[in-house]
Design a protein around this nucleic acid. Structure first.
Length: 496
RNA sequence: GUCCCCAUCGUCUAGUGGCCUAGGACAUCGCCCUUUCACGGCGACGGCAUCGGUUCAAAUCCGAUUGGGGACGCCA
């Protein structure tokens, strides 16, 4: 047991995206590795953009990924509330303290004015820092402004000097305080604290010891450190994680494709694969290992082995990794995972319990699945009453003309088979091909296409076995009478 | 523009001064296995951004340049 406490603090303004997920993951791994606490806090001070639905989505995504939290929404904890919006009273106390000690001051400047001054500075090529014009305001003047109906914002007075910190990942980072400006800590319009203030107060009051967050927060860090100092609070340690970039090396965003965790869930990625992949983005253990179970990650994770450079998100590797995880899942588990995708494709009714049959299908699909959804193209012909033959497929079939000529014989032989099993099916097909001097390959490919409408399927003998004598016969007969004039065949799949 | 961060194959990375003729993984391309696809096996392709130091020795240390990213909000 120790006092290490870390947190993940998303703002509920959208889905949980990959970058956020990785930040959460690294915090979680760190906490689990050292035996500390992992806290989830919802930063919903931006009332306009925050939504409960989004908070729920984020929470669901965290659950999907298996990143459980020790304190936070749904589980509570001793340092709540865990929604910032419910913590306004706490912030107010600290604001007062800063005001009393003259470490913060009222600012009556209007947003438009500030914007104009900012643009002017931009034009001149000088950095914009707030000029503190409101710091000098007399009490009378302030009262007067208030009487006129103006509500001030509150700014934090940045002391002079230099602020530096030892980043857990990057080492020392230094800023001159003169480059920082007196940032707003309480907004004038809604009297809600700004992010930079709220995080600090929350991290202090929640006793956070290590702040691990995205690289994009580096420039916020000196401001926050100055607040800690002003409040006489102990500093946590900071670690800034490299960002995740899109394929064009810019910040990962919608235009790079799917960025939300739930989209990946829908596409048929496994949480463990996603976790493994995200962990390896910016972190490595040695020169060999790519696949890490959750337990292994927890055991082997360390901040020292996090890299400094931004990582480009690369879907191919994730797909490969996902395939590895599917492959390694035991058959019953794999079957269970695949069922929702068959249902979504309309191949399987929601209440249909065909576990035994499904398991056999999943078994013959074998190692082919990269995404859970791949089950559909590989096996839909097991569920469909209608088989469609595309132009391309029929062209391939032309090439197996020889195979085609012996299909009737093959069919008859298969129907008479007793017992009807993998060995006898294979032997029959090979024997008949040999008898007619046709390459087994051609017979097999012709049969595959006739029975499935595809060139890519699980093994043919297994497929025939699972299809059964009856459907095999029906499809061959239906095809024979239709080909080459018709592009589809219909047969009743279920006898009733 | 100002401040900050970063820099090894296309991508993720190993590498902390000699073990580097730079290792692995994904992707790509061959070959093998094979009833298609996938799996598996073998192999190929491909990189230390540049320049200058320090050193007997540099991917590794220092500096500059270049390139990339981030932050410059009463957003978080």
């Amino acid at each position: 047991m120790n006092n290490i406490r870390v947190r993940f603090a998303p703002s509920p303004t959208g889905h949980l995206h990959l970058g956020g997920a990785r930040t959460a993951l690294f915090n979680w791994l760190f906490a689990r590795h050292v035996g500390g606490k992992f806290i989830l806090r919802i930063e919903d001070t931006d009332v306009a953009r925050s939504s409960e639905a989004s908070a729920k989505e984020i929470i669901d995504a965290m659950k999907f990924l298996g990143l459980n939290w020790d304190e936070g929404p749904e589980v509570g904890g001793d340092y709540g509330p865990y929604y910032q919006f419910e913590r306004k009273d706490i912030y107010a106390k600290f604001i007062d303290k800063l005001l009393c000690e003259e470490k913060a001051y009222f600012c009556f400047c209007k947003a438009e004015e500030l914007q104009a001054r900012r643009e002017e500075a931009q034009k001149k090529g000088v950095p914009f820092v707030y000029d503190r014009r409101c710091l000098a305001l007399s009490k009378e003047k302030k009262d007067e402004l208030r009487k006129n109906g103006q509500t001030p914002a509150i700014r934090f007075k940045i002391p002079s000097g230099e602020t530096s910190f030892i980043d857990l990942i990057r080492g020392e980072i230094k800023f001159k305080n003169e480059d920082l400006d007196d940032f707003v800590i309480l907004k004038s319009n809604d009297q809600i604290p700004t992010y930079n203030f709220a995080v600090v107060i929350d991290d202090i009051t929640m006793k956070i010891t290590h702040v691990l967050r995205g690289d994009d927060h580096i420039s916020n860090t000196p401001r926050q450190i100055l607040l800690y100092h002003a409040l006489n609070a102990a500093l946590p340690q900071f670690g800034h994680l490299p960002m995740i970039l899109g394929s064009d090396h810019t910040r990962l965003s919608k235009r790079h494709g799917a960025t939300a965790v739930d989209e990946y869930a829908e596409k048929g990625y496994l949480p463990d694969a996603l976790i493994n992949f995200l962990a390896r983005l910016g972190w490595s253990f040695d020169e060999k290992q790519e696949i890490f179970s959750r337990e292994e990650l927890i055991e082997k994770f360390s901040l020292e082995r996090i890299g400094k450079n931004a990582a480009v998100f690369n879907t191919e590797k994730l797909i490969w990794l996902n395939g590895e995880y599917i492959k390694n899942a035991p058959l019953p588990e794999r079957t269970k995972l695949v069922i929702p995708f068959l249902q979504k494709a309309g191949l399987l009714a929601k209440n249909e319990d065909r576990t035994e049959f499904l398991q056999k299908i999943v078994e013959i699909v074998g190692d082919r699945l990269k995404l859970l959804g791949d089950i559909v193209p590989y096996t839909d012909f097991f569920f469909k009453d209608r088989i469609e033959y595309s132009e391309d497929i029929l062209k391939v079939l032309e090439k197996s003309k020889n195979g085609l000529t012996i299909i009737p014989d093959t069919k008859d032989a298969l129907l008479q088979l007793e017992p009807f099993n993998l060995e006898t099916i294979e032997k029959t097909i090979r024997d008949i091909s040999e008898k007619h001097n046709v390459k087994p390959k051609e017979t097999i490919q012709a049969l595959r296409i006739i029975l499935t409408g595809k060139t890519v399927t699980p093994g043919l003998f297994e497929t025939i076995f699972l299809l059964g004598k009856d459907i095999t016969r029906k499809r061959i007969e239906a095809f024979s009478s239709a080909f080459p004039n018709q592009k589809t065949i219909d047969i009743q799949l279920h006898n009733d």
